[in-house]
Nucleic acid binder design. Structure first.
Ligand SMILES: Nc1ncnc2c1ncn2[C@@H]1O[C@H](COP(=O)(O)O)[C@@H](O)[C@H]1O
Length: 1085
DNA sequence: CCCTGAGCATC
DNA sequence: TTCGGAC
DNA sequence: GTCCGAAGATGCTCAGGG
């Protein structure tokens, strides 16, 4: 039944009809002509309608409870019994298993398609649908479609497509490409929905889920469907379906085969479903599993490479190679370098199927998964200029050799067979491993593998056959992140955002955006996102977290200001208003990776990226912790740097250190001079802007450029010749001093060697790269300026408000002094104060919204005071934190600036005596001076700094770009530098100081009250209001005055209000507060 | 021309 | 990929 | 133990909007 047997006439038909029908027609070709019945028209009348199909599915989905599995299978069986032909059975199976071609239809398009269904009963269907989803009224898009279609009713004649029509529509959708594709697809999807769902709304649901491709949501997927299929009678040998699919994923072919020879043999060019390994959590568990298995103690521990699974099919004579991914996709085009290595004459096989892992490598070094995944996905010509990395196949099994399947042979024999015929090379390697018998050996092997940057071990029974598609107990995976010992890898992170769940989780939050604490450069407690997490949580926890978080989420959609988030990392979240109430979770992960989505560690890593987590999951809640006790960014960064993969890269670049680069010469050719200058600026911009900026937008193009720049910086180590080694100076160039100079030097040499100015393609590439990088930086700077302007404005407003608040607080304090001449406050006073203040706020709330203060009653200082009486250790800790962070900030900035000046490479300053000699040192010095002055006098400091900046900007202006291609943009440098973080810090510190003073006073006041220990405010006293009191005494008069004061506070001082609200809530511990979780989820170390 | 969003692939 | 729930 | 369906990060490619 090979392709070759397709009659020419049919081929013609195929071409005419369209490629999508190709497979089916090919299927017909292999069988006697009489099997071609029923004819299409006859088929159409008797064909199963989608509505009927959907009814079966709907019934199956409603089955639950004891014995549901079996009953569900029975139900599906009745569906199969209703099928009339093999052709139809193919459709049924493919639809049920969502076995479609790539159709490029996802969540967004399914939503949009609601507008294309011609619905009469709903105004804006897509909008409505989105609303339902966001409120959790409907668990998924499919259910939403069903609801929309149900409203339409079935009055009149409505469309009801049969399965064949549906399939053809799906094929059509998959063919849509290029301009206008999205619109066309949307329309077709809409029509399809009508065809499937008008008669029977559930049909809409199922066609939607089929297109979405993640299962029908009826509690029956491949395995269950196969069990039902085993019992049906239309197609013979149904019980062998799975077995056949394991060696041939094409359902059409398999059904034909079931009717025919029914051979379930592995074949060359047809992918075999790969075997998987069972997870194991410890060496002990593994040993136990092995022993209880009994018989065989013949096990092998193999490195678990961190790459992609690859099945290699090769035929020597025809010189053909085909590669299949873990999901049986053909990925031959993605690894051109390795194809040749598979068909050399050195191999001793005619043909072969290998099981392997493909990994990015640098010589003998194994590179992280992330590098591998950066390779192009599309078929590339074999003549590519530059690849992201070299690649190697680590072969660990052999399934087929010289026309014969060897799946049934024990691993031992498969291995010995393949090593006999396979010739090793740089591209084709053998998976490292060793036999082991006891726990000790295993432990040693594990340590070794992890040090080699693998994920851990795969343990294999050498006596076991290859079991395609099975999570077999003969293979055990022992991953490093499962190990209990990796306790250091657990992170305590704060939930700062939530997202509603889908499907069965639509009634709760399905995932949480987590952040770690950054005790960054300002006293503000900032959090940086590190991952989202939605697994590891039980239903109980999910429900409780929903209760807890619901009142905390803001409806504004604005990222809260305690959070650093990149733009990509802040999409689609509902934010938690104040982090003091946010839950803390202990999480773990397999790896820490570079991230362009999360913000954790921005500015801490030398290559200017942030950190994210691979495979994050919740270990448990930590109600014993508040957000202020979360893991810090610094801790995460050091965890990142401690990883074997990272260390190994470090070692390799450090190890080949070289003597100091020679100063750049003046004999540099003209074009390069311009280039150099511009690159110098770029470099300066990178060095000065990047590490200090707090929030950075990270995009794809940007990521590439950043990596490019970083590569240039680090490449010098390898680029520079190692001659001239002076043993006198064992000092290698430290990482911080990797200089742009040597990069230029390298490219200059390249340029000179290539005779003509423009002939060097390297130089050309570099030029275009430089230009792009330059443009990018320019844009970034513009953006930075704008956002800094906005921030500064905001900041000054805030400062103003704070100082106002401060003044009022002082007044308040004075007044209070008068109120309590004997420095004692009577119980009734406190009572009144509290009652009065609540009254004030509730009056205000009702005045504004008419509701009972759903946005949280505005709190007030007085209330705070009474709230603070409790022993709130955490509040004090927080204050301490703020203070220490404050004092740190100045020091940090100073030393940062000084470091900046030292970092500037000497060779550069020699080359540009007029510029660098004064530029950086002076800037740094001025800044540092300003900081010192600033301790006492912020205004002077700022002026000082601004002047310094103005000077430097003038100097910068004197640089004349020699190369017209690289004109420095007309930036207003004084503005540019004024907007630098240093200035921002000043502003923030001013805020901080104001705030700190305020807090100090409040603290003092609260201490005064503390000695009183007044009783809690009785309910009756609340809401009474000051006006209801008899105002007789002097005290009461003063209280009247106080009312005026505080009401102004309430109205004018939003910032303060929020702050105080946080404090209040913290002390009050509301009914479902985070602290109360301790009871339900007690912490056990 | 560049950036973004959606879809899909890998893990 | 990881994890929890239902059977 | 099996099966299903929740959930994650990253990176590439394409179409569409400015
Ligand atoms: N030596 C090896 N033997 C088998 N699988 C391996 C090996 N090295 C890496 N793997 C990969 O590990 C995967 C299984 O682990 P996991 O993905 O954690 O379930 C397989 O899909 C392989 O791609």
């Amino acid at each position: 039944m090979s392709r070759g047997s397709v009659p020419a006439a049919l081929c013609l038909v195929v071409m005419l009809v369209g490629s999508r029908l190709c497979q089916q027609l090919r299927a017909f070709a292999g069988r006697p002509p009489c099997r071609l019945t029923p004819r299409p028209r006859a088929l159409a009348t008797r064909a199963m309608k989608f509505s009927k199909f959907a009814q079966f599915l709907e019934e199956a989905s409603q089955i639950s409870g004891p014995g549901s599995r079996h009953r569900r299978i029975q139900r599906i069986l009745t569906l199969f019994e209703a099928v009339r032909s093999t052709e139809e059975m193919k459709l049924v199976l493919k639809l049920m298993l969502c076995d479609l071609d790539k159709i490029n239809v996802g969540h967004a398009l399914l939503l949009a398609a609601a507008d294309e269904m011609g619905l009469k009963s709903t105004k804006k269907p897509a909008e409505k649908l989105a609303q339902w989803l966001s409120r959790g009224d409907v668990p998924d898009v499919g259910e939403g479609w069903q609801r929309l279609l149900k409203k339409e009713g079935t009055a009149g004649t409505v469309e009801d497509w049969n399965l064949q029509q549906v399939w053809e529509a799906l094929e059509k959708i998959s063919e849509i490409q290029s301009e206008g594709a999205v619109q066309k697809r949307t329309q077709l999807v809409g029509k399809l929905a009508t065809g499937c769902g008008r008669k029977e709304p559930a049909g809409g649901k199922f066609i939607c889920r089929i297109m979405y491709g993640k299962g029908l949501g009826i509690g029956a997927n491949k395995k269950t469907v196969a069990k039902a299929f085993a019992k049906q009678r239309l197609v013979p040998n149904g019980e062998r379906l799975l077995e056949m699919l394991e060696v041939n994923p094409d359902i059409d072919r398999v059904l034909e085969s079931l009717e025919g020879d029914c051979q379930a043999l592995a074949q060359l060019w047809s992918p075999i479903t790969p075997a998987c390994a069972q997870p194991s959590r410890s060496v002990e568990e593994v040993m136990q599993k092995i022993h209880t298995k009994g018989k065989s103690m013949n096990w092998r521990a193999e490195w678990k490479y961190d790459g992609e699974r690859l099945q290699i099919h090769a035929d020597k004579k025809s010189k053909q190679v085909r590669l299949f991914s873990r999901n049986l996709n053909n990925v031959t085009g993605r690894f051109p370098q390795v194809l040749d290595a598979m068909i050399t004459d050195k191999h001793n096989f005619e043909n072969i199927i290998l099981d392997a892992e493909v990994v990015a490598v640098d010589g003998d070094r194994i590179l992280p998964f992330q590098i591998l995944s950066r390779r192009p996905r599309q078929a590339q010509g074999r003549t590519k200029q530059q690849d992201v990395a070299d690649v190697a196949f680590f072969v660990f099994d052999c399934l087929f050799v010289d026309g014969e399947s060897i799946l049934h042979q024990p691993l031992k024999e498969r291995r010995s067979r393949v090593w006999k015929v396979l010739s090793k090379s740089d591209q084709i390697r053998i998976a490292e491993g060793q036999a082991f018998t006891d726990a000790k050996e295993l432990q040693v092997a594990l340590g070794k593998s992890i040090r080699a940057s693998t994920e851990g071990l795969i343990l294999k029974n050498l006596d076991s056959p290859y079991e395609p598609g099975v999570r077999t107990a003969e293979w055990l995976k022992l991953k490093k992140d499962y190990l209990d010992s990796s306790l250091s890898d657990s992170i305590d992170a704060v939930a700062v955002g939530v997202r509603r769940g889908n499907g069965q989780r639509s009634s709760v939050y399905g995932s949480f955006l987590l952040a770690v604490r950054s005790k960054g450069s300002s006293g503000h407690c900032k959090f940086q996102t590190i991952c989202a997490v939605g697994t590891g949580l039980t239903n109980q926890v999910l429900n409780d977290l929903y209760e807890l978080c619901q009142p905390l989420v803001s409806d504004s959609g604005v990222v809260p200001d305690f959070l650093d988030a990149t733009s990509a990392g802040s999409k689609g979240w509902m934010w938690i208003k104040d982090f003091w109430k946010a839950p803390v979770m202990e999480i773990t992960a397999a790896d820490l990776t570079e991230s362009s989505v999360h913000s954790c560690g921005l500015g801490h890593l030398e290559n200017s990226t942030a950190i994210g987590l691979r495979f994050p999951r919740v270990l448990r809640l930590r109600p014993d912790k508040g957000p202020e006790q979360a893991t810090t960014t610094e801790q995460v960064v050091s965890m990142y740097n401690d990883q074997p993969q990272i260390k190994s890269v470090r070692r390799s670049t450090k190890g080949s250190g070289k003597p100091k680069a020679e100063p750049m010469t003046k004999r540099m050719a003209k074009p390069e001079a311009g280039l150099k200058r511009n690159m110098m600026r770029m470099g300066m911009a990178v060095v000065t802007m990047f590490p200090l900026r707090r929030v950075r937008r990270l995009g794809k193009g940007e990521a590439h450029l950043r990596r490019g720049l970083w590569d240039l910086l680090t490449a010098e180590v390898r680029l520079m010749p190692e001659k001239d080694e002076s043993p006198q100076s064992p000092e290698t160039i430290p990482e911080e001093k990797r200089s742009w100079a040597s990069v230029f030097e390298h490219f200059r040499e390249k340029g000179e060697n290539s005779e003509t100015n423009s002939a060097s393609s390297d130089l050309k590439a570099f030029r275009s790269f430089a230009r792009r990088a330059h443009q990018l930086l320019e844009r970034q700077q513009q953006r930075a300026i704008q956002s800094r302007r906005a921030a500064l404005h905001e900041s000054s407003l805030r400062t103003e408000r704070l100082s106002l608040a401060l003044a009022e607080a002082e007044e308040l304090e004075d007044l209070l002094k008068q109120v309590e001449p004997s420095s004692k406050v009577s119980e009734s006073d406190v009572e009144r104060l509290s009652g009065w203040s609540t009254s004030a706020s509730s009056t205000r709330a009702s005045g504004v919204s008419g509701a009972s203060g759903s946005s949280g009653a505005a709190s007030q200082p007085v209330q705070l005071l009474s709230g603070w009486e409790g022993e709130d250790v955490e509040a004090r800790q927080k204050l301490g934190l703020l203070q220490s962070a404050m004092s740190q900030a100045a020091g940090e900035l100073r030393s940062g600036l000084l470091r900046l000046s030292k970092d500037s490479p000497k060779e550069l300053s020699e080359d540009f005596p007029g510029i660098l000699a004064t530029f950086l040192p002076q800037l740094a010095q001025s800044c540092a001076d300003a900081m010192q002055v600033g301790e006492d006098d912020w205004a002077t400091a700022e002026a000082c700094l601004l002047e310094a900046l103005a000077q430097t900007s003038q100097m910068t202006m004197t640089l004349e770009p020699a190369d017209p291609d690289f004109c420095m943009p007309d930036l207003d440098h004084s503005t540019l530098f004024t907007e630098m973080p240093g200035v921002q810090l000043l502003e923030e510190q001013r805020d901080q100081r104001a705030l700190q003073k305020l807090l100090e006073r409040i603290e003092a006041l609260s201490q005064r009250f503390q000695s009183e220990a007044p009783p809690p405010v009785p309910e009756a006293a609340r809401g009474q209001g000051l006006k209801g009191l008899k105002v007789q005494t002097l005290r009461s008069a003063k209280l009247d005055e106080l009312e005026g004061q505080v009401q102004r506070l309430v109205e004018e001082n939003q910032a303060l209000e929020e702050r105080l609200e946080q404090e209040r809530a913290r002390v009050e511990s509301p009914p479902l507060g985070w602290a109360s979780f301790s009871k339900r989820y007690p912490f056990q170390p």
